[in-house]
């Protein structure tokens, strides 16, 4: 996919700067100057120390926040709102899923909001729930499911409209380690299946190296891109084999050094 003739990037950030006004005047700068592209089909992970503006960056990428200066382009057009081709998965599934709707209802609302016709919605719901392994959970309420299952509902909901770009904000930070490994493999599989470009924000270096084609390292606050590292690990990746690889360890060590010292 990436080796084909040059295609325009799915997202392009140029000199993105984002500040929040402070109470006594002035502003707190979350992002100082961030520039990078994400190519079609790529899996990009953004890592950085806490307070590096990772969540702010993702909000700007999604069109949920406007940069103070600089531009964010999605498929060649500047962002003003969340475009139809973008799906977002937030960290806290307990807060982002709608507890008054069943699992089906949550996915259905996403389709309705994007104007998908009524008669084609049930098949779309079944398809997307099956691809995250929740074919039988449609009639349950989110709060009746485990944390890992709830985050899979959120992933299904984000994928329901077949986005070109999936944005994920520390999506696996609030589940236990074993569940996290399962979800990591699930997202790699689903990304193949849907052919979606992924930007994945995380503070977990191992997770970033394991998932990514490319890791974008943000410096401590206010964020700038301090380094971009191509991850040349073979795919498909495997929780045991890939993480035993010496190259994995080398990436890990290098990234830890970057994130810890700044």
């Amino acid at each position: 996919m990436m080796g084909q003739a040059p295609q325009p990037p799915v997202v392009a950030l140029k000199g993105v700067r984002k500040g929040y006004p402070l109470r006594g005047g002035g502003q707190r700068l979350a992002l100082a100057d961030v520039t990078f592209d994400v190519a079609r089909g790529e899996f990009a992970c953004v890592v950085g120390p806490s307070g590096a503006g990772k969540t702010t960056l993702l909000r700007c990428l999604a069109g949920l926040a406007m940069p103070t200066s600089g531009t964010v382009e999605f498929e060649g057009t500047p962002l003003r709102q969340v475009p139809a081709g973008v799906g977002v998965v937030f960290q806290d599934y307990g807060r982002s899923l709608f507890p008054w709707l069943t699992v089906r209802g949550n996915v259905d609302l996403a389709l309705k909001a994007r104007g998908v016709a009524r008669d084609s919605r049930p098949a779309r719901i079944a398809e997307v729930l099956a691809s995250v392994g929740l074919a039988d959970a449609g009639r349950s309420y989110p709060w009746q499911l485990s944390g890992g299952m709830q985050q899979r509902v959120a992933i299904a909901r984000a994928l329901a409209c077949r986005p070109d770009l999936l944005l994920m904000d520390e999506p696996f930070a609030s589940v236990d380690a074993q569940t996290r490994f399962g979800l990591e493999d699930l997202i790699l599989r689903v990304r193949e299946e849907f052919g979606v470009t992924v930007v994945f924000v995380t503070h977990d270096i191992d997770e970033a190296v394991y998932l990514a084609d490319r890791v974008i390292v943000l410096s401590a606050s206010p964020g700038v891109v301090s380094e971009v590292i191509d991850i040349a690990l073979p795919r498909p990746r495997d929780q045991v084999a890939t993480k035993r690889d010496e190259t994995f360890a080398a990436y890990r060590e290098h990234l830890l050094g970057l994130v810890m010292t700044r």
Binding site: Q81, V88, F90, R95, S96, A110, A113, A158
Partner: peptide, 15 residues
Amino acid sequence: VDAVKLDTARALGMS
């Protein structure tokens, strides 16, 4: 209402 729910609604493209 939780800000995350509002963000989610916007991210889903709701009017």
